[in-house]
Amino acid sequence: MSEAPQPILLSSHLLGIEGLSVGEITALLDLADEYVALGRAKQKKSPLLRGRTVINLFFEPSTRTQSSFELAGKRLGADVMNMSVRTSSVTKGETLIDTATTLNAMRPDILIVRHQNSGATSMLARKVDCCVVNAGDGAHEHPTQALLDALTIRRRGRNFEGLTVAICGDVLHSRVARSNIHLLAKMGARVRLIGPKTLMPAAVARFGVETFTDMREGLKGVDIVMMLRLQLERMSGAFVPSTREYFRYWGLDREKLSHANPGALVMHPGPMNRGVEIDSAVADDLEVSLIHEQVEMGVAIRMAVLDALSRGLPAGERTI
C-alpha cells in the first residue's frame, strides 16, 4: 500500500449500496483483491488501523457477519469490541439512541451496526461522530454482503456486463436482495427475481428487474443463481404454506439448476436452510457452489471497507 492512500468513498459512512457510484464500488473491489492476497499469506496482519477502535454493535444476533467484521478489524490491527444488545419489546428504539450516544462517548473510530429495523443504521449515523458501517438494517440494505458477492463473481472471471443473475426466494424481507439488486444493476448485470408472489415486494418491477414465479422458467439463461435464506423468524404471517411445498417449487436442486446456463454458479449468503431453499447436493458441490468462497471474500471486503473509511478519519486528535 502506498504512503498516502487515495480516498475511495465520498461518504464517511457505508450505509447502503444505493448511494455508491460504480467508481466507488470498483475501487472497493480492487482494494479487496489485495486483502484476499493478504489473507492467504502466512502474515495476515496489516498495521493500518493500529490504535483505532472498531465497535461491532449488533442488535440482532449474527455469527458470521459479526465474526467476519471482527476478523477484518483485527487483521488490520484495530482494537475490536463486540457488543450484542438484546432488545426487549419495551425498550427497543430507546436503547438504540441511548446505546449510540453512550458508545459515541467512548470515541470509537468505526461503528459497525446491525439492527432489525430498516433505517436504524442511518438514524444512528446521524447521532455519532464516527464512521458507521451498515451490517444489515431490517429489510433495507446489507452493503458488505452485496460487495462480497460482487467480489466473488468478479474473481471467478465473470464480467458484470451481460451477466444474468437470478435472485431467488424471500425478496420481500431480504436486505441482501435489495443491496444486490442495486449493485448488480449499477455494474451492468441483468437481474431476475424468482419466488412466490407473497415474497415479492409490490412495485418490484420499478427496479428494472424481471420477476418469475416459475423457477425453471426463471433460471433459463442465468449465469449466477443467488439463493436467499427463507427467513422464518421474520415471517409475520403465513407467506408460504409449508417448507416442503416451498422446497418443491423454489428449493434449488440439481434438476432446477439444469435449466440455467451451463457452468452456472450458485451463491448463498448463509446460513443455509438445507432442504428448504437449497438441496445439499447443490450446496456442497464445489463445482458449482461459491458458498465457501463468499465467506473468504467477506473478510477481504470488510477489510477493504474499514480501510476505505479509515482514510477519511482525522489523523490528529479530535478536539470535540
Binding site: S118, G119, G138, A139, H140, R175, P201, F207
Partner: peptide, 20 residues
C-alpha cells in the same frame, strides 16, 4: 396492522413494512 408506510416503490427501497 404492523405496517408503517404506503406500499409501492419507495417503501420497497426503504425496506419498510407497507400496506396497499
Amino acid at each position: 396492522d404492523g405496517t408503517a408506510v404506503n406500499e409501492g416503490e419507495y417503501a420497497m427501497r426503504l425496506g419498510l413494512p407497507s400496506a396497499p
